[in-house]
Design a protein around this nucleic acid. Structure first.
Lengths: 237, 237
DNA sequence: ACCTGAACACCGTTCAAGT
DNA sequence: ACCTGAACACCGTTCAAGT
């Protein structure tokens, strides 16, 4: 696999210092995928790689840099749409491409949000997205506001607003909880019931994430399109 | 300084166990305000209150519950708008009220997002927001999607998408950085330059957060209004 | 009953000693 | 020069002993 100059097992390469930055970052992604972001510690990652904790600091100067690197690995895997007059579809495609890539790593958004300084990879991705707006003829001004309006949704997903608390299994207990909730949060209960009915699921079945994401994305893109068609400017002459 | 148990200073009350849950939560808010969220540890908070760490566990069963409580304190302070036919303005008012309250605690959004189970206070706030849509005549269906589209923006602010990296002070170094950036991130540089020009600030002066927030909020509300006026449904007959 | 110190099982990171 | 174990300064939380 990874050609070693004397011997042969893949673990050997790791143990002998053949461990590269890329393998560290990839292992970090795997560890977060398997065990959650809170489990991703320098010590655990080292253990996972069969290496002493301090060995990681050869490839990554701090945990912050590790996380930056992890974001880079993920973002680098996002497909780019090609610029052209059909900006709305292009932006849509690129955001949905991000969604395809990042949705497999539910912890990714938290990491992206936690980074204070954007890496070159992240900047390039954002630059390409702005480029799609500009290629479609949007003003710098409007493209700027559009980027802010997209916000973290440009990474293809959002945090859930509704908590996903499973109601008690026991029917009697569930009825009691629901009755209490219905009095205190009538609109939430009504809404959850309607959503569950639409999806034919039992109580608390949740929402259709894919639908909600596209709904909001299109709402924003349609709004921006309307402003663009109208020749909107933030500082009218 | 710290009066002894015979005397009567307000700190005394704290040391004698007069410390209530509310004071713990308020102190936590103050500590996060002053020193940042990462500084808010159980141990530091205890020290801040002149109390042994374990004393906090009398009022809060875990750090997670402390954070839940902190969110409650903040959210409880948000003004409610009154329901009525003018739903768009009402929603706008309530979201901007949240913004007024939470903007003083820049770390608040991170805490809100990190909570997995919403507290009654949070649920009530969300319920009231849904109530505003419903009072305006929106269908359960549309109100539901509207809530998802608002997402964390219902709390009055968003994470910055653009990193706020200050360019080097040295003019020569800055020119070099800018030239390199202009080649690699042409659209970002163009955009930042335009934004700075608009605001008459020097490079990296940043964006007008207030404007960007209202822009995106209105984009969403206008879009929802249009769907409502059109009698939109997610499952057309 | 209430309170609390010490202890446990962790962190990220420094640093000096070992090869 | 390279590597690494021990150590440092922290965490949140348990628990048994003290009052």
């Amino acid at each position: 696999m990874y050609g070693v100059h004397v011997s042969s097992s893949p673990d050997d390469a790791v143990r002998r210092g053949r461990l590269g930055r890329d393998q560290v970052l990839r292992a970090a992604v795997r560890l977060a995928d398997e065990a959650g972001l809170e489990t991703l510690s320098m010590r655990r990652l080292a253990q996972h790689l069969g290496v002493v904790p301090m060995a990681l600091y050869k490839h990554v100067s701090s945990k912050a840099e590790l996380l930056d690197g992890v974001v880079d690995v993920l973002v680098a895997g996002i497909d780019r749409a090609s610029p052209g007059p059909g900006w709305k579809d292009a932006v849509r495609q690129q955001v949905l491409a991000a969604r395809r890539t990042l949705l497999h790593h539910p912890w990714a958004l938290e990491v992206i949000e936690s980074r204070t300084a954007a890496s070159p990879v992240v900047l390039e991705h954002m630059d390409s997205l702005i480029g799609l707006f500009r290629a479609g003829g949007l003003s710098v001004d409007l493209a700027h506001h559009a980027m802010h309006a997209l916000g973290t949704r440009m990474w293809g997903f959002t945090r859930d607003v509704f908590p996903t608390a499973a109601p008690p299994a026991d029917p009697a207990a569930r009825a009691a909880v629901l009755e209490h909730a219905a009095r205190r949060y009538p609109h939430i209960v009504e809404m959850v019931a309607a959503a569950d009915h639409d999806r034919g699921s039992t109580v608390g079945g949740g929402c259709d994430d894919e639908f909600e994401f596209r709904f909001a994305l299109d709402l924003l893109l349609d709004g921006i399109e309307r402003l663009h068609d109208r020749g909107w400017t933030s500082a009218p002459a």
